[in-house]
C-alpha cells in the first residue's frame, strides 16, 4: 500500500475526531432529549425523501433508536436532527 493511500486512510479514520472532537461522550441518558417540534418537522421533511413515511406507532422507543441512527447514516442527517426526530417519535408512539 502506497504512502498516499495510507495517509488518506488515516485521515478518513482519525481526522474527524481529531479536528472536531468526539461528541459520543458517555451521557447519563442517550440519546439526549431533543426538540419535539423541530423533530416533527424533520420527520415530515426527511423520511419521504426515499420511502413512504412510517407512523411513529409502528415501532417501540428502543427500535426507533437504532432506526433513526441507521437513517442518520443513510440520509446524511446530523446528530441534532436524529435527537430531535427521536424525541418526536418516542413521544408520539
Amino acid at each position: 500500500m502506497g504512502k498516499r493511500t495510507m495517509a488518506v486512510l488515516a485521515g478518513l479514520a482519525m481526522g474527524p475526531a481529531l479536528l472536531m472532537g468526539h461528541a459520543g461522550a458517555v451521557w447519563a441518558e442517550y440519546p439526549p432529549e431533543g426538540d419535539f417540534v423541530r423533530g416533527a418537522r424533520l420527520w415530515a421533511e426527511n423520511c419521504g425523501r426515499c420511502h413512504n413515511i412510517r407512523d411513529p406507532r409502528e415501532l417501540r422507543d428502543d427500535q426507533w433508536i437504532t432506526t433513526v441512527y441507521h437513517m442518520r447514516v443513510r440520509g446524511g442527517l446530523t446528530g441534532q436532527d436524529v435527537r430531535d426526530i427521536y424525541t418526536f417519535l418516542k413521544q408520539s408512539n
Binding site: 478518513l12 479514520a13 474527524p16 475526531a17 472536531m20 461528541a23 441512527y69 446528530g79
Partner: peptide, 12 residues
C-alpha cells in the same frame, strides 16, 4: 459505523 461527532460518521 462510528458516530465521530454530530456531522461525521466513519463507516468501515
Amino acid at each position: 459505523d462510528w458516530f465521530a461527532n454530530d456531522y461525521v460518521t466513519v463507516v468501515a
